[in-house]
């Protein structure tokens, strides 16, 4: 059975929700752990429906994220494109991975993203050396199974 791709409207709505989840006020302890849901959504659509959305979508989502909270414009746009590129290149392999390995791979992608952000922050004079900035990539990998199954249900409803 060939699964129909989710409509662009639905994907935009889901991304918007993920974007809002990035700035909803949380208690400080949770705020530090807040996973980057938008990156997970981008990874999921790049892996499960590689034809639904291209890299342009990841770029626009990143730009929206920068407009919402980034200290410099374009950093999330750049890193989301890199993440989406890795996910697009490996989608056939990724789908075959067992869940644990998927989580691990997601963590690697998020880690690459964070490393790029770290570098861009440093170059643009917003250096942030606190080790806690690396925590969201771990929580992102931990919530990956939940996000993946939620997106699967959402996508199959359309």
């Amino acid at each position: 059975m060939i699964q129909q791709d989710t409509s662009r409207w639905a994907i935009s709505l889901i991304s918007l929700a993920a974007l809002l989840a990035a700035i909803i006020p949380l208690p400080n302890a949770l705020d530090i752990l807040r996973p980057d849901l938008l990156a997970l959504v981008i990874i999921w659509f790049a892996v499960m429906q590689p034809r639904a959305m291209g890299l342009g979508y990841a770029w626009c989502a990143g730009l929206a994220m920068d407009a919402m909270r980034g200290p410099s414009l374009g950093e999330h746009a750049l890193t989301y494109v890199v993440v989406a590129y890795i996910a697009h290149r490996t989608y056939l392999r990724f789908r075959m991975f067992p869940l644990g390995q998927q989580c691990l791979f997601v963590m690697v992608m998020l880690g690459a993203q964070e490393a790029l952000l770290f570098w861009i922050d440093g170059v643009t004079g917003h250096a942030m050396l606190d080790w806690r900035r690396w925590l969201p990539m771990v929580t992102g990998a931990i919530v990956w199974p939940v996000v993946a199954s939620a997106l699967k249900t959402l996508a199959s409803k359309d």
């Binding site: 291209g54 890299l55 770029w59 410099s72 414009l73 374009g74 494109v81 890199v82 989406a84 643009t124």
Partner: peptide
């Protein structure tokens, strides 16, 4: 396409900075 978008982002970063 990835390269083009990355170049655009870098351009945006430079302009913003």
């Amino acid at each position: 396409r990835a390269l083009a978008l990355i170049a655009t982002s870098i351009g945006l970063l430079v302009v913003d900075y």
